[in-house]
Design a protein around this nucleic acid. Structure first.
Length: 492
RNA sequence: GGCGCGGUACCCAAGUGGUAAGGGAGAGGUCUGCAAAACCUUUAUGCGCCGGUUCGAUCCCGGCCCGCGCCUCCA
């Protein structure tokens, strides 16, 4: 089942296939490491993760490259404010970024490219641009891309720049650019700023040149897919195209994918709006990493996602339903045999799940057949009409679902513990939800012990004591479920 | 101003030219020592409003209203 993905460049749905017939080469813009990642960043990375995982599920080989922008104006500014070198400043945010990706179960790309480790390649590219007259240096030593050298500019974002007069809205007097819309390739060093001494002068790279140089180095002149947040379409990706294609005369990427921004409570997330959340903020409030993951991927990537706390609770409950079902299926005992209705239900779910994702990664649609299957199988189990042969058909469907969604297996304890430890270390203990600390205080062993005690009490028909234990556990966020196969407990 | 997106039940959210997936929440019931879980029933004659095309439109076309995004650093 091949993926049909909307291509921003053509404005159409197109089948995504590797141009070399073997490995899909893709480049996705990564973070600028000047602060902790927020949920908007992660929506994009998560949607790219869904893409990755689905492609792998269809058997495709991938070479996915992500850049890390570890030098830019904000980094230089923040590092200076902290009184440290950028090389000291960025690692903590790089580490935090990967921790957050792990928490959200975002797979690592095949390669990570760091800007500061690829300065030479950027300089080379600027030299090539200069050689064909597409780059020029201004008196202060900065280099600019001459937009007039690339007539196709605007093809991705469908912008017609002809109506934009030089100087109309753009500050032209800052540097002596030939045209106001020419963009920086290389920024000359100002006193005290981080800079590299290179063939084209002392300075630091512009943001756009980074991606052109690195995608070329890691993936070649032309590759299959370029992805990123919708805001990057213009000017970032447009500039990448101009830089790369001016030199190579080949399409930078055949296919472009842009993930729409998420809103928070119906507004664009912004610090000034007071609706700005990092992943860590949410974990410390007591939301599970899996719920955040599911909430951020359940709305298809081309639609705005309105992020709300209600949405997180809903995701939490939906995951709970899946996990309960999975536990019932794997821990229950079934008679040998098959139920034809369940056999076909499993096949149907599998087919519809894959078809939904193949259709422009429609994650919302992909969930439906899985939940249909859950209901049908639960009903069959209630009636004793689910057999080992059925279980063996259903489990692979859940496995495929989790190969993409990755929320059924409960790995939520670690990210939360990690976030709490981080908060304590960072002096943000006040941000940790009190009930979270209370829950952390109860160990699995302690829970098991109480559960056993309750089982004994129940056998003695001492229901008062049994209920007392259950309530006690409930107060600490532990829910008990009695069944004929024993007691299952879970943390809220 | 330019470009673009959306308005589907209490909430979130798919979707199709032939009469509305799924999730969450609520209500009633079955089961249970009681719960929880699970299951069953239930919650849009209706998909922003008004026209048009059509045998038939939520889905196509036009207009309008509302919300949002991008156009500057931004995932």
């Amino acid at each position: 089942m091949n993926l049909h993905l909307f291509n921003t460049l053509s404005g159409q749905m197109e089948e995504l296939v590797p141009m070399d017939g073997q490995t899909l080469r893709m480049y996705a813009c990564g973070p600028t490491v000047y602060d902790y990642g927020h949920i908007g960043n992660f929506r994009t990375f998560l949607q790219v993760d869904v893409l990755r995982r689905f492609l792998k599920l269809t058997g495709m080989k991938l070479r996915h490259v992500m850049n890390i922008t570890d030098v830019d104006d904000k980094i230089i500014r923040n590092a200076a404010a902290a009184g440290i070198a950028i090389g000291e400043y960025t690692p903590r945010y790089v580490d935090a970024f990967f921790e957050d990706l792990d928490a959200l179960r975002v797979e690592r790309p095949e390669a990570i490219a760091r800007a500061t480790e690829n300065i030479d390649r950027m300089v080379e590219l600027i030299q090539k641009l200069a050689a064909v007259g597409a780059a020029y240096q201004t008196d202060d030593g900065s280099w600019y891309f001459r937009l007039s050298a690339f007539p196709a500019y605007g093809k991705l974002s469908k912008k017609d720049l002809s109506g934009m007069e030089d100087g109309a809205r753009v500050d032209v007097d800052e540097y002596e650019k030939d045209s106001a819309r020419d963009f920086a390739l290389w920024k000359a060093a100002r006193p005290g700023e981080t800079a590299w001494d290179t063939m084209i002068g002392r300075g630091r790279p512009g943001w756009h040149i980074e991606c052109s140089a690195m995608s070329m180095a890691y993936l070649g002149d032309s590759f299959d897919l370029h992805a990123g947040g919708e805001d990057l379409m213009f000017p970032h990706h447009e500039n990448e195209i101009a830089q790369s294609e001016t030199v190579t005369h080949k399409p930078l990427a055949r296919h472009w994918m842009h993930v729409r921004f998420l809103l928070v409570d119906g507004r664009k997330m912004a610090k000034s709006e007071g609706n700005f959340y990092t992943l860590r903020d949410l974990l410390l409030k007591g939301y599970k990493a899996s719920a955040i993951r599911l909430a951020l991927i359940s709305v298809p990537y081309r639609h705005q996602l309105n992020f709300t706390f209600d949405g997180l609770i809903e995701a939490t409950n939906a995951i709970d339903r899946l996990r309960t079902f999975y536990a019932r299926l794997t821990q229950g005992t079934f008679a040998a045999g098959e139920n034809p209705a369940m056999q076909s239900a499993a096949k149907k779910a599998q087919t519809e799940f894959m078809a939904a994702l193949a259709n422009d990664l429609n994650t919302a649609e992909a969930r439906a057949p899985i939940f249909d299957l859950v209901r049908a199988a639960n009903a069959a189990m209630d009636q004793g009409k689910l057999f080992t042969g059925d279980r063996d058909e259903i489990l692979p469907v859940l496995k495929d679902f989790d190969a993409v969604f990755d929320v059924i297996e409960d790995r939520d304890a670690e990210p939360t513990r990690h976030a709490i430890a981080w908060a304590q270390q960072a002096g943000r203990t006040a941000d940790v939800a009190p009930e979270l600390l209370a829950r952390q205080s109860l160990t699995d062993d302690a829970i098991e012990k109480l559960v056993t005690e309750r089982t004994v009490a129940k056998k003695q028909r001492n229901f008062a004591r049994a209920d007392q234990i259950r309530n006690e556990l409930a107060e600490k966020g532990v829910i008990l479920e009695d069944s004929k196969d024993g007691v299952r407990w879970k943390r809220k």
